[in-house]
Amino acid sequence: SAVVMEEGSPGEVPVLVEPPGLEDVEAALGMDRRTDAYSRSSSVSSQEEKSLHAEELVGRGIPIERVVSSEGGRPSVDLSFQPSQPLSKSSSSPELQTLQDILGDPGDKADVGRLSPEVKARSQSGTLDGESAAWSASGEDSRGQPEGPLPSSSPRSPSGLRPRGYTISDSAPSRRGKRVERDALKSRATASNAEKVPGINPSFVFLQLYHSPFFGDESNKPILLPNESQSFERSVQLLDQIPSYDTHKIAVLYVGEGQSNSELAILSNEHGSYRYTEFLTGLGRLIELKDCQPDKVYLGGLDVCGEDGQFTYCWHDDIMQAVFHIATLMPTKDVDKHRCDKKRHLGNDFVSIVYNDSGEDFKLGTIKGQFNFVHVIVTPLDYECNLVSLQCRKDMEGLVDTSVAKIVSDRNLPFVARQMALHANMASQVHHSRSNPTDIYPSKWIARLRHIKRLRQRICEEAAYSNPSLPLVHPPSHSKAPAQTPAEPTPGYEVGQRKRLISSVEDFTEFV
C-alpha cells in the first residue's frame, strides 16, 4: 500500500504489510482489554486508547508507543517513533504512522508483537499521559499493580500540603484535648505513684524565703500560729474566702420596643432579638451553673441549684474572672410580681450592659438600685453597626469618660462592650471603697496581704499580753509611738528610695 506524505515531511518511507502472525497476537491482546472507555466527539468514531511506554525494544532499544483501536470491530496495532508526526486519522481507513528506516525489517515488528510479559508489566506500571491515566485505574490494570491496600497518609489540604495544625504542634487546635488526655493517663497511674504529687513543697518555699535578706529584721520574721485558738483558725479560714484573682460581676439587660421607661417590662423579658443573642455568645463562655464549683469559678452570688437559672456566661484571663448576670437567662416566676429574684442580683451590680433595642433613649435610673454606678448603652444600628456610649452617676464623672461614643461592628461589639464594662467596674470598686478611707481597694491579692498582716499583728499583741517580758514586734495601731529626735535631713532622693524599699516589703498600697 502507498502512503501520501504530508508537506514538509521527509522522503517516502516504505511501509510494510503486517504479517498475519502479528495480527493474531494483537487480536488476542485486544480481546482481554476493556472496550468501555469514554466516548469521543461525534466527528471521530468511538475508540479506546491506552498509551504504553516501553523502555527498550528487543534487539533495537527504541521507545515506541502502542495504540489499540477497535475500529470496525477489528483491533489494530500502531507502532510509531515518538519524534515523528502521525498522519491524519479517518473512520474509513486504518491508522497509518511513519516509521524510521531502522524499523524497515519486518522481523523487528514480529519481535515487538512478542514482547515478554516482563516488558508489558513494566510498561503498564509506568506513568501514563492524559486520558490513558484514568483508564489505567480500571480493573483491567489491577493485575499489573501490587496486591494489598496502599499505606494511609496524613490529611492533605486542597493545595496538596499538610495542614498547619499537623506541622506545628504548639498551634494545633487540639492541644488542650491532648492535655486532658495526659491528665487522664496520670489519673490511671499505679498505686505506688499515687503518693507522688507534682509541684513545689510549701515548706521548701518557706525555707528559701526565711533565709532571704527580706527577713533580716525582727519585724519581718515569720511567727508560728497558735493551734489552740479558734479565733485565729477562723481568720485563716476567712483568708480562703478572698480569692487571689480579681472578680467582676456585670449585669446584662435587654430593652425591647416600648420598654425604655418600664423597669418591670425590662426585667420580665425572657429572650431578645437575634443580634442580641449573637452578642451574648461573644461576651464569654456559656457555663452550666450546676456543674460549677464556687471555689474555682466566680459566680457573683448565683445559685447553683437552679434558683437563678441553669446557664450563664463568664469570662476570665490570667488575673481576673468576670460573670454576667443576664436577665433573660434568669427564670421569670409568676409568684414574683416585682421580679425581686432578678433584681437582687442586677440591682447590686456596679455596672450594667444595656442592649437598647427600643429605638428610644434609655435613662440612668430606670433600673432603681443603690449600686448602679455605670451603664454601657448598646444601640443597634443599620448595616451591622452599633452605637456604644457610657452613662454614669455624677459622683463617678471624674473616673469615667462619658463624652466619647463609639461606632462598632457586630463582630467586635462583644469585645468592646466587655472591656468598657470591666474598666468601669474597676473604677466603681475604687469609688465605692472611698467610703472607708482606711481600706482603699487596690486588688484582691493586696486584700489578702492586708488580712495576713492584721492576723500577724493580733498574734503579736496576744503574745505580748500573755508574756509581758516579750517586746511587741508591731505596736498596736491605737498606741502612739514614742517621740523621736529629728534626724539629720537627708537628700530627698535617698528618703524616697528608703521609703520605697520599706513599702515594698510591708505593703503595696502607695504604689497603687
Rank of each mutant, 00 (worst) to 15 (best):
A405Q: 12
D382Y: 02
F324Y: 05
C305I: 06
S477Q: 10
S466G: 11
I459E: 11
V400D: 03
D295N: 07
S435H: 11
H474P: 14
E384Y: 05
L225Q: 13
S443A: 08
P482V: 12
Q230F: 14
I250D: 00
Y254Q: 01
H271G: 15
I367S: 03
M330S: 06
H474Y: 11
G496S: 13
S435A: 14
A464I: 11
N436H: 09
Y493R: 15
K363A: 11
L346Y: 04
N348G: 15
K290D: 11
D410F: 00
Q497N: 13
A251Y: 03
Q419N: 10
A483Q: 11
T366P: 04
P222R: 06
P482E: 13
H451G: 08
G369V: 03
I319R: 03
P380V: 01
E228H: 07
L302C: 14
E488W: 10
A424I: 02
L390Y: 11
R458G: 11
S244K: 08
F415T: 04
C385T: 11
V354N: 00
A427C: 06
V304G: 13
W445E: 15
T402A: 07
L501Q: 12
E228I: 08
E397P: 10
R234D: 15
L364R: 14
T509P: 13
V304L: 13
T379N: 06
D240W: 04
M330H: 07
D217F: 15
P226L: 14
Y383F: 11
S428F: 05
K394L: 08
T402V: 10
D395K: 04
V374A: 10
S477I: 08
L501M: 11
M420Y: 04
L289Y: 14
V354G: 01
V374P: 01
V430Y: 15
H474R: 09
T485Y: 10
S433N: 07
A483E: 13
R418M: 05
S244H: 11
E218I: 10
D341N: 15
I377K: 02
D382L: 04
C385N: 06
H431N: 06
K343M: 15
H478Q: 14
P475Y: 11
T277S: 12
Q259M: 02
D341V: 10
V255E: 00
K221F: 15
K342F: 06
L239D: 11
P486L: 11
P294L: 14
S443H: 06
N467L: 14
D308W: 07
Q241C: 09
S229Q: 09
G272T: 03
G492W: 06
A483N: 09
G256P: 03
T328M: 01
F279T: 00
P243G: 06
D240S: 05
K333L: 14
G398P: 14
H316Y: 11
E494M: 08
K480H: 14
S244M: 07
F415N: 03
A463F: 15
Q321S: 12
N220G: 14
H451A: 11
E494Q: 12
R285L: 06
S409L: 02
G365N: 12
K249E: 15
D246F: 06
Q241D: 14
P468D: 13
L299E: 15
T490L: 10
T379P: 00
P471V: 12
I250A: 01
N269D: 02
Q241Y: 07
C292H: 15
V351T: 04
L253Y: 15
S466P: 15
Y254M: 00
C392Q: 03
A463Q: 09
S428A: 15
Y465I: 13
S428Q: 04
H345M: 13
N261C: 07
N386M: 02
N261D: 08
V335D: 15
L364F: 15
I250C: 02
W315S: 04
V404M: 13
N436E: 14
R285I: 07
S469E: 14
P331D: 05
Q293S: 12
F362D: 01
Y465F: 10
K342E: 05
M320A: 13
Y465G: 09
S229D: 14
I353R: 00
A424K: 01
A464G: 08
S262M: 03
S403D: 09
G301R: 07
